[in-house]
Design a protein around this nucleic acid. Structure first.
Lengths: 198, 198, 198, 198
DNA sequence: AATGAATGAGACTTCATTCAT
DNA sequence: TATGAATGAAGTCTCATTCAT
């Protein structure tokens, strides 16, 4: 019989993750200190460490959140019955990226970029990233297969290769948005429509 | 005296950058310590600090190198007189990415991903990244303009938007190659050829 | 009511001491955390603190127990009417040490060694240790005096000095048993019989 | 070509060990903090950690020193050609213990008692303690064998058992000296002469 | 009375940088 | 000029104890 409800525990955990995310968005994983997270969360060091056993665990939690963010809503948006052309799927994904990025709580795409870098030297995060992105890519794979069935896309090309290229357009949008700042769903749509077969 | 000394200085500098790159490829910017770089370079702490005033300066040097790597050869490859279709330009760029990544001295694309993350909190690296990537994107812009002049690409679409999408395919290739590992210039070519108007 | 409650209190106290002893035998005083004791006892933090005002108080209680262990049974064994030679007294004491050490609840001699170390910087435990060991030594003193009266031992030597040497054989047995492991009451008896006048 | 001599390094190391020993004598292994050792040594944290990789390593070094202290001089004292009776060997050992204990630099017997306790939960220190004490006991074993050859000691008793009892008298002296304080080489000699066959 | 979540001082250790030699 | 030992601020994490519920 815990003194506090499971609800309370989850709320505290979320509070810590939110605080940590805020810090990471501003300073990155490595410049964010536990003292920053503790202060931002409004809890004590001991409290934070009773929810996460180490800084690494917090980083992993935030990274997983950020890597899931796109796919989470992707499922909702694209899992509808009506077939979606590759172009429309990309347009909706890009639009969703911006929605998620501009949601309150800070731009998670900044955390995702951190997670990409971290994946290169942290096997745990690498596994998460690989898993999440394969899952996301599989959604594009479904769309490609439907389009091949429709005859909209050449059925003789391996659909995985097409899904690779489709998925591969997302990080480039995220990166241009963060580093250069002149891309929007509208500019990307225009470019896509000019470049892609339809 | 000045000539030899200057050469010597440059050689030393390159030696330090190479050592630091090796460390960064394995451990990332933040887990790489100056002690690591000093050991790997075979120089003394004092020597290293006489060439770079801080760790941050070394990081900036490596980041700049890595962010330039793609564009450097891009210029050589694409600055030829004959017009290049968007598809071919992308194919050559992707092929070049892999060439550079597999060159001796370690996979610079790993450093580039580190640099993306670092750009988000380090204004100096941000400026470099933005500059290098705008420059690279401008090359795509040229190609798009020529294609619009040829009538191969719709002339009514803002060529920048098309260049954005083209440029935006590169980071996605790099990322899938590092995180998932199942993309090659050949799979990407197949996907591009299926997806793009020609 | 008071009777039952008092019994209850004593049982709880014993439960805590037993739990703490288990921890201390495994990890020593300092590596044992209150969290360990709380978990091992099956009580809550608040409960444990309602029986002992601090970790130090628990440590003191265990130390006192361990330092008393030898003497407790010593009294029973040696307080008989018949005179005991120094040799026999030592043999019985050594035998008793092993009995106590092998009793269920864990080897208290391990706690005693911890208490020796702790005595050097904790005045409270020092007082307890000094008191218990003087008391134990006094039993040897009685035996020496009887032996001097019998003429078995030289009456011209200060009996305290003889008791010091007799008492001084016990820690060496305990230590060799714990650190080296090749001493038993039998090997010690053989050594004593060869070495001591009888 | 190190910038500092080996001599210098050894001196620094000794400086740290001496500082740590001072702290440990006052406060024990666990209450001694690295900050204490750093302050007492007059060096910086970084300097201390460049000579010892952890607090545990310093503790091990001090423990080894303390456990060796008795045996070191034991060898010098007893390795003479002339045969030494068990009684004389014990007397000289006890005298040596006091000499060592009263040497400048602090009473190492206090450290030895700490090491006994630490041996029970630290396998590295346990191995050192076991090794050193077996070595010391072997010296008593030699003496016993000579005495058996002389006919001074019963040749039918296992000499190891006799050495166990002889060795076993030393910790008891050390402990009474530290905890009770009324033993001296003279009182112990008197007791030994009254108790032992000669 | 009992619980156990929360506190926060303080422990150990690292590492970018300097400067006496 | 080059060296690398030394610095010390700052980082991560622990744990004895308390007190709101």
């Amino acid at each position: 019989m815990p003194k506090v409800t499971e609800e309370h525990r989850l709320a505290r955990r979320a509070q810590i993750v939110a605080a940590a995310r805020t810090c990471v968005i501003e300073q990155g994983f490595h410049k964010t200190t536990m003292a920053d997270v503790i202060q931002e969360s409004g809890l004590s060091a001991g409290a934070v460490y009773s929810y996460f056993k180490s800084k690494e665990a917090i980083v992993a939690a935030i990274a997983e959140d950020a890597l899931s963010a796109i796919d989470e809503l992707f499922e909702k948006l694209l899992a509808s019955a009506e077939p979606l052309s590759p172009l429309m799927a990309l347009e909706r994904t890009i639009a969703h990226v911006v929605t998620v990025a501009e949601a309150p709580g800070g731009d998670v795409t900044r955390v995702a970029v951190q997670a990409w870098a971290e994946s290169l030297r942290n096997e745990e995060i690498h596994e998460v990233a690989k898993g999440k992105y394969c899952q996301l890519r599989d959604h594009f794979l479904d769309i490609v297969r439907r389009a091949q069935a429709d005859g909209t896309v050449d059925p003789d090309v391996d659909p995985l290769h097409i899904a690779q290229v489709m998925f591969g357009m997302i990080p480039g949008f995220v990166l241009q948005r963060l580093l250069i700042g002149d891309v929007t769903p509208e500019t990307y749509s225009a470019g896509l429509r000019a470049l892609l077969r339809q």
